[in-house]
Design a protein around this nucleic acid. Structure first.
Lengths: 340, 340
DNA sequence: CTGAAAGCGCTTACAG
DNA sequence: CTGAAAGCGCTTACAG
């Protein structure tokens, strides 16, 4: 049995007003930093706030001014994917950092990868948050792409079927980045270059696969060796096996994420292939997964943390009705280590 | 420049009442599933809700009934630690699962490891959540241990200095678990057994170090080989180096977390030691880190997911004023793989 | 610069 | 079973 603690009931604006000998309006003004309050009144009110330990009730405030000062970070991925890929950690860090100087708090909502649950929908639509950042959007999820009819939304990564909706997003040029990574392998003189693509229901995955294909075709190579993963290590391993079974002479592979590349490398070594001598591997992300394995990955770097910060900045601008570009495309670059 | 979308203003209870031809009270009753409403009225109201796409405004509801239907998961760790250790992923999964059938949403708050920020404090005290689960508590943080004077709190892991406060928590018997892991090494006939302990400002770390010490002393071994890490892989590696420098003949080590054990093993191999032949390693957690390295860890299993679910259950009971035990200690067990 | 008053969208005794 | 009314704790024109 637990001890029943008498829960303290929090002091209200009213109490502060009484203590400071002013009206509630005035207390509200100083709490919200409004100008046009005389210095001594400000001091008196602050003293009362201090001594009563007053903290404004957020529900009341929200109801009155229709702002929650909270934003949702929605990640339509299951817990394993979310926690398993360091890419997300960096995005979250960036967002947190971008929000630091603001008054907004970030509420993380793990949603279902297929379509958002009733609970998520009610949360997003029920006035719990002023805006949302959606990272890792999948096709079929029109809820999120149309959510901005209700609250401002910024996507981390161009949403699927971007032509259908005019959503705000920050992204890298995935196709160009992938082409760069592939070109690097081509320039190495590799002949049979495959790719492990991400899930075809995600725009970034599609774009990276296309970038690989474009680079291959432009240099006169066949763009036939494609296998798909879902951005997890295990799926990277499985795709690598499939690729090797189809083409034992494969001598390079462009992998759409570092985590999948790590999985692919395990398989290559199991099959007796040396990396990079027999098979060169280029990843994508340059997340901490790139350097956590035994073979440091040569990879296409995307500025994940900065992207997160940029998402926060963009959403803040929308929330404040400040002008902002609808899309922000950040640069990628090659990071050469040992896998290629 | 972004396109200014005219944001739809959500329908209110009032609108539903009008549409259904009943009073607001009645709509409120059916929304909240109160009994004593006639079937046809229920149908009429539901039809109106459906057609208007009504979602109750949470701020208004909170203000009126003093419930937010939200609970905070507070983790006083930086993003790297939180995302880096699969232990947290499992706890989160457990909590999420334990909350699934309830109407509560979970809001994750990453706090500072030292002391909570002003933002976190205001969040927790400003009526944003009905209760909190605090995982990974450190010493010096009396804010969290006294937070239950304001809202119900459940700790994941016995808080530091539990004798000072009577907090609710779910935990394993860390000392017993560590003793079991150490005893396993002793039974293997190992002679020089060190330990890599967790940070001494965390209760679980202290308890595990004590469990190791107790098992050592009881079997007549000196309990002198202790080095401390902070539960990260890198710190496990550093501690292993220190241990080896102090005692080159060490032939076993009990490590207070799987992640640190993984780091320790890298060092052992770098120094030319075979695991388990030269040095046997026993970890703690049995998280996914135990099997992600090249040498599968023999480890002390703690039921992280179930613990998370239990935290949720306990908090829900507190929230509903149902009786519940103040502490729940769950069982550990040895999982023997290859590292020892 | 300051206060009285209305209102935000709900819930909840209180009557009936 | 149902409704009128008060109230939750703030903010915000509106006066002055």
């Amino acid at each position: 049995m637990t001890l029943e603690l008498p829960r303290r009931t929090a002091p209200t604006l009213e109490a502060v007003a009484a203590a400071a000998g002013v009206s509630r309006s005035t207390v509200s003004r100083v709490v919200n930093g409004s100008s046009h309050v005389s210095p001594d009144v400000i001091d008196a009110v602050n003293a009362a706030i201090e001594s009563l330990n007053y903290i404004p009730n957020r529900a009341a405030r929200s109801l009155a001014n229709r702002q929650t000062m909270a934003i949702a970070l929605v990640v339509p991925e299951d817990t394993n994917r979310f926690f398993g890929d360091p890419f997300f950690a960096e995005i979250v860090q960036g967002i947190t950092q971008g929000l630091e100087d603001s008054d907004y708090v970030l509420n993380l909502q793990l949603a279902s990868p297929s379509s958002p649950s009733e609970k998520t929908i009610r949360y997003l639509l029920g006035g719990n948050v002023d805006g949302a950042i959606v990272v890792s959007h999948h096709s079929g999820d029109d809820f999120f792409t149309t959510l901005d009819a209700t609250i401002p939304v910024v996507f981390g990564g161009r949403p699927y079927h971007p032509e259908l909706h005019r959503n705000n997003y920050v992204d890298v040029d995935n196709a160009a980045g992938a082409a760069m990574g592939t070109q690097y392998l081509i320039d190495l003189g590799r002949q049979r270059i495959g790719t492990i693509a991400g899930p075809p229901n995600m725009q970034a995955a599609i774009d990276r696969a296309e970038g690989w294909g474009a680079a291959m075709r432009e240099s006169g190579h066949p763009a036939d060796l494609v296998e798909y993963g879902d951005f997890t290590m295990a799926s990277g391993a499985a795709a690598m096996r499939a690729l090797l079974d189809r083409e034992p002479n494969l001598d390079a592979v462009f992998v759409a994420s570092d985590l999948m590349a790590t999985g692919a490398i395990t398989v290559l070594r199991d099959r007796g292939k040396t990396v990079p001598a027999d098979v060169a591997v280029v990843g994508f992300d340059d997340s901490s997964a790139a350097t956590s394995g035994e073979i440091a990955l040569t990879t296409v770097h995307q500025p994940s943390r900065e992207m997160g910060a940029e998402m926060a900045r963009m959403l803040l601008a929308l929330l404040r009705n400040e002008p902002t570009e609808r899309e922000r495309v950040m640069p990628t670059r090659m990071v050469v280590r040992t896998s290629a």
